[in-house]
Write a protein that binds this DNA or RNA. Structure first.
Lengths: 353, 353
DNA sequence: GCTTTCATAGAAATCGTTAACTATGACGCC
DNA sequence: GGCGTCATAGTTAACGATTTCTATGAAAGC
């Protein structure tokens, strides 16, 4: 019952070869199964593999033959529900295509994001998926374009997931969802309920692609219905519960005419809800409230939140699918995923005056 | 303005060397900064690096010198809030220690989990963090023990995060949190409020370490207070909202004597809440409800949920810290992280009869 | 002035695998 | 019966870095 030739070390193909009396090449071929090997030899090799508990060295394999079977995804944060769903989709599709997943978080910092893209270039990731809205800042876009080119040159691919394209000259795959359309539909829904004075919470960082799109839909719906939009009704938030709470308190302190609040995200809406309740306002009897994202939280609020549904998981899956099979999807390197209104209980007609 | 020597390919040290008139060795040394190089040479090399937009090949580096700077974490699911927080902690600490993160999801399947551990052995991950409760099944534990040994032999480390140790002979790092203690404290709290008849929802899969611990704490508290525990009060759930809802409906259909429900997780509690509300029961006036995990959802429920707090992020951070610096933490390769009750609004005294 | 030491740089071996060539019997074919 | 094929296996050279080991000129010591 002879075991490892060299004592405590990790066995290599050479060890397996020696132990089964064949050459390293043959071992490699048995394992890869891409070359004729006699049944008897194969059996001997497999036995040695099992006895030595040999596993291949992925680094060495990447160096020699095919690349690293790896996809990277970069998110602002792992805990945000939307990010988590996209991540889930990315991981799913990557696994389905036999790839491993590298994750990194940028915490929304553009510099860190570019740093990570660089790291992924070192890692030779086959695709680098950037998740979540990004800044529209010119120098940032330029640097990202350059990163896209660099990745392209190494045979990798930059994927923009949930943010608009960089420009026609940047080799990148884009998978967006219809922020504007969803916001347009939701705003129209509120208007159809009779609301004429809707506050939008989430106009914070101008240049942030996600909120910009949602705000644009909000505006367009007003235009389409020939309604004025009092711009001071939009209030800065940072997409968390707390800022939704604060923004609502300020809003209530200075103006109580609005009959509905459109929160830029469901999480913001959850903060809004707390502030409204504290102020003694009932939802939807006194004020209607709607969100965006349709994360599980939406159904846990009381009342259940009317919101815009986005299939984040599909977003992630599509991103990876298109990036890895770009020959096949050559024409669809820019995809838009639909969004739609989910009607629940938090929005109703405005109170009669 | 000469650019890349070879056209569309990714540049290597050799290209940089050629372009700056030095040897590959020198380029490596400039980049690593671990060997004296004249200022003038360094400048020339750095210039070439920038001009060629060279980045190192991580695979090649791993093969030659130091290993892969990589940590792997395996979770059931990316979207569960608890998993996401642990992931966040793992990623944070890994980044802080200059490592990259590989993620995989097992969807709770033990076979898949072992498969992934194998994959990580191929990848030469420096640490493999298994997140979330696992099965206590004998053959599974044996196979995991063997995996721990194999990882150990390659200089890697298996980390059990949020589950009990395998056995003293398995080379693994364990970071648990006090499931039993938290459940004990919470149950005691309910008892101190006056409850004598508490239903525990979540006794589903026997052998699942997380729920087993929580149930044990529940039982121990009953014993400590000399209270009988009617075992039919524990009901099988699968840790999601829906199963909490269903289990509660069944519970209500067959027995209405209980005055409090202890849900095994906050997510289950959210489903319980819906069922109670549908049945016209007020929380906490008619029935008290408590959860476990203290995920953000807990504060979004109405009423806000009394629950047990677990610092999941710290759990992840500790896992990585201990695995990567085991010389320094040699004595603490088994850590227990404390849990504590968070009192909010969903539990109160039982209704007077 | 001649050896010793130091700073600097290059050549060559190495890491573990794969892939491109070779090599060798056995078999079938004209 | 010689020769092209085929199945099978081995040799050798990449892959892109790091890491010994060498080598060289200059400064320093006696």
């Amino acid at each position: 019952m002879a075991r490892q030739p060299t004592s405590g070390e990790r066995p290599t193909v050479k060890d397996v070869a020696a132990s089964s009396g064949v050459s390293a090449t043959t071992v490699s071929r048995v394992l890869a199964g891409n070359y004729p090997v006699s049944a008897e030899t194969r059996a001997r090799v497999m036995k040695a593999v099992r006895e030595l508990d040999y596993v291949i060295n992925a680094q060495a394999r990447a160096l020699g033959g095919g690349g690293t079977k790896t996809v990277a995804f970069i998110v602002h944060d792992l805990v945000g529900p939307a990010f988590a769903y996209v991540g889930q989709g990315v991981e799913q599709q990557a696994t389905a295509e036999g790839r491993l997943c590298l994750v990194c978080t940028s915490h929304g910092d553009p510099d860190r994001e570019l740093e990570i893209v660089e790291l992924m270039r070192e890692q030779q990731a086959e695709a680098v998926v950037l998740v979540g809205g990004g800044s529209g800042n010119r120098s940032y876009v330029d640097r990202l374009t350059q990163a896209a080119r660099a990745l392209d040159k190494s045979g990798s691919r930059l994927v923009l997931c949930g943010r608009p394209p960089l420009g026609t000259d940047a080799p990148a795959t884009v998978v967006e969802y219809d922020n504007e359309g969803g916001a347009y539909a939701m705003t129209s829904y509120l208007i159809s309920l009779g609301h004429r004075d809707i506050a939008f919470l989430g106009a914070g960082e101008a240049g942030h692609s996600t909120v910009d799109g949602r705000l644009r839909g909000f505006e367009r719906a007003h235009e389409a219905h020939h309604l004025p939009m009092t711009s001071h009704r939009t209030s800065a938030v940072t997409f968390d519960r707390e800022s939704g709470y604060q923004a609502t308190r300020e809003l209530l302190a200075r103006d109580r005419k609005f009959t509905a609040i459109f929160a830029a995200t469901d999480v913001v809406a959850s903060g809004v809800l707390v502030a409204l309740r504290e102020a003694g306002l009932r939802v939807p009897e006194d004020v209607s409230l709607v969100g965006y994202d349709d994360i599980p939280l939406a159904r846990d609020l009381t009342p259940e939140l009317t919101t815009v549904h986005v299939d984040y998981e599909e977003l992630g899956r599509t991103a990876v699918r298109h990036a890895l099979n770009r020959e096949r999807h050559a024409l669809s390197q820019h995809t838009m995923i639909g969004t739609h209104v989910i009607i629940r209980d938090s929005a109703g007609p405005p109170p009669s005056p």
